[in-house]
Design a protein around this nucleic acid. Structure first.
Lengths: 236, 236
DNA sequence: CAAAAGGTTTAACACAGGTCAAGGTGATCG
DNA sequence: CGATCACCTTGACCTGTGTTAAACCTTTTG
């Protein structure tokens, strides 16, 4: 599948490509490819040589780590419009540090690292955009480490929920989980069984109403505050 | 304290500055400052406006996160020669995402973000160096997330130990912990008490000999393999 | 040098969340 | 339309690690 169908405007909408001129964009598209993935199919594996980076057009991609014993940990869920693996070119070894597989049917744009590096060589503006991009990945990962070490499972989930709330929501909101619950659970480093229990507890305590992959938050302010302290009345 | 005493060669040894020409280096040094920190003193606090990044000349700096309940998590220990906070200029908000304090007396070089950005504008080579630098931070954090989610406390510690082993060591090695044990423990997201137990267990099982802040590894190959499976004979 | 302070170790106990096992529900399929 | 499969839930149990408390250094300090 070649890239003749890729629209320049589609790329320009992404901050990373927002500063490219027509010639640079054409240059990038020349070596770009469209990749179709079926559900469950891998885009790349950990440790594999990285010659491309990607932008997801549609579907959901799961970035995850595998342990020798077979257990897995979802690092990030990519949704339509996001780029990923754009920083790998600058790592020594230039191999993907995670696995990437499709959660459902996906359409992915694949760009040549080599071509993009050539463009970066000529454009400090795009360098700056990539560095801004990389810094948001750094901040995201830092937030994850914070969550893993300083928050308990329930708090990780409520924070996750609150991050899904569309801007502008006032007091309540209904969130649709973008992936099977066990995938969200892995993203939050929680076992499916624990995730289920957390959901039940939050519902029992009146914070949310969960129905399938829809979660209704009754009060945005209460959630996150009340839940924050695991044992507010421990010493009474 | 001005920067008249900063030697250009000192900076050039660091990969980040390795591509700067004399004029650029002079420009950077013009707005650089030397900062002396006493033990325990803060270099910056989380959420503080970031107008500088740093290179540590001597001593040890602790980068850490704080939770509202007062608990802390050491993210990284900076040792002499390392740069840090160099990526913050590209984050939106441009505030430090962590705290930084001195574990002992430190001498720190502080560089102006504004000046460095000006240099980056003129030098894609230095952009590439900074991106390589940022990608190693990304990979480090990923390794931490991996460790936190897919490894237990003992494994995190043995992996940490093995990373401290100087290259070239054959079968055994003696590691000197570069910080108080409770700081290393926090770096590994382990409580001091648990850390102490892990040390005792590894010693009882004959893997290491611990004496103060010195840890002797009896067999580099055995450690990391034998220890890897928590319960190898669980089902016997 | 006694006292205070900070770091480390030990032991007893507690618990969040992992593990195991079983059952439910809904979708897909031959 | 029964069978299979994937996902989710529930309950009982287990364990790694946190917590609490106390004792033990070692170093610093008045």
């Amino acid at each position: 599948m070649n890239a003749s169908k890729i629209l320049p405007g589609e790329l320009r909408r992404h901050p990373l490509f927002g500063g490219l001129d027509d010639a640079q964009l054409a240059q990038l598209l020349e070596t770009a490819r469209i990749i179709h993935l079926d559900e469950g199919q891998h885009l790349f594996q950990c440790q594999q040589q990285a010659s491309q980076f990607f932008m997801l057009r549609s579907g959901t991609i799961r970035l995850y780590l595998s342990a020798p014993d077979g257990s897995e940990k979802v690092i990030h869920l990519i949704t339509a419009g996001e780029t990923f693996a754009e920083a790998i070119t600058f790592m020594e070894g230039q191999v993907y540090p995670v696995n990437a597989s499709a959660l459902d049917a996906c359409e992915v744009l694949a760009f040549s690292n080599q071509t993009f590096r050539a463009i970066l060589r000529e454009s400090t503006d795009t360098c700056f955009r990539l560095m801004a991009d990389m810094s948001t990945w750094l901040k995201r990962q830092l937030a994850d480490i914070d969550a893993l070490t300083l928050q308990n499972a329930t708090l990780r989930f409520t924070n996750y929920l609150l991050h899904q709330v569309p801007t502008g929501a006032e007091h309540e909101a209904t969130i649709k989980l973008g992936a099977p619950k066990h995938v969200i659970a892995s993203r939050l480093s929680i076992q499916p069984e624990s995730f289920s229990r957390i959901l039940r507890n939050l519902q029992r305590e009146g914070h949310i109403i969960a129905e399938g992959n829809l979660i209704h938050i009754k009060d945005l302010d209460t959630l996150g505050q009340t839940v924050a302290q695991p044992h507010p009345f421990k010493n009474l």
